[in-house]
């Protein structure tokens, strides 16, 4: 597992690869949608066909969670969430960049001691999936959970409070965002680490086939997990509309 450049500001550690990965993923999503919708026509052509198929797929998710009016309201949210998580997941598989550091860089968190632990040449990741970080996945999952509870309170404080009589509901409210985050993080993290181990610890002629197979599987898993993340976010928000049933 490689190191990451970290900047410490007022006691808080900021991982630069995550910030860079988030910006790049957001830029890719923005650019893709911007250029796909430059010339919108009634008879779709080129990128517009793919985009409309994608929107229909997301409409399937929201359609099975809410009634018709709310489904249209949450379409943009779900579409953005799906596309962002999808691009962020594939970023580390396709565009993983790692460098080797021989000299200590104290302001990036690479000190003499960390170099000594890695025998003088530390592998430092410059770009990897932001979703392969536990903090990032938890941020997104907790945002969804907070929003769901906000919707619940807005829908009526009484009906939001009522299920809390059951102690199992307390456990559920904590475990929902926890599993939501870890599901995404663990899949992407395990995929990336295995690719790194296979590529760095063994010669290329041994690992060429396993790496190719695992990269294909990682792309598939990234897609499935982006879809599941969106489905679960919608289900968790939809549960609060139903009044805790």
């Amino acid at each position: 597992m490689e190191l990451t450049p970290q900047v410490t500001v007022a006691g808080l550690k900021f991982d630069l690869t995550i910030i860079l990965g988030t910006i790049i993923a957001a830029a890719i999503v923005f650019g893709l949608i911007y250029f796909a919708t430059r010339k919108v026509s009634m008879v779709p052509r080129g990128l517009q066909v793919g985009l409309e198929m994608l929107i229909d797929m997301i409409r399937g998710i929201t359609g099975m969670t809410y009634d018709h009016k709310r489904a249209e309201k949450y379409l943009a949210f779900s579409f953005t969430l799906f596309l962002f998580v999808l691009v962020a997941n594939q970023l580390g598989v396709i565009l993983m960049i790692t460098g080797e550091v021989h000299d200590p860089i104290p302001w990036l968190g690479i000190t003499e001691e960390t170099l000594k632990e890695h025998n003088g040449a530390a592998h430092v990741a410059l770009l990897k999936s932001p979703t392969a970080d536990l903090g990032f996945a938890f941020t997104m999952a907790i945002s969804v959970a907070l929003f769901a509870n906000f919707i619940g309170i807005k829908n009526g404080l009484g009906s939001w409070l009522k299920p809390f009589v059951n102690p199992l509901h307390w456990i559920e409210e904590v475990s929902k965002p926890a599993t939501h985050a870890m599901r995404l993080w663990a899949n992407i993290f395990a995929g990336e680490v295995l690719i790194t181990i296979l590529m760095t610890k063994f010669p290329l002629y041994v690992t060429f086939v396993p790496v190719a197979v695992w990269i294909a599987f990682s792309l598939f898993v990234g897609m499935i997990q982006a879809y599941i993340f969106t489905v679960l976010a919608n289900v968790y928000i939809g549960q609060k509309y139903a009044g805790g049933h």
Binding site: M182, A186, F189, A190, V221, Y227, I228
Partner: peptide, 20 residues
Amino acid sequence: TMILFGLIEALPIIGVAFGI
């Protein structure tokens, strides 16, 4: 099936991630 496959795979892969 693919959605459920993703849901099933999640817990074992969390175990694998903590193992790593």
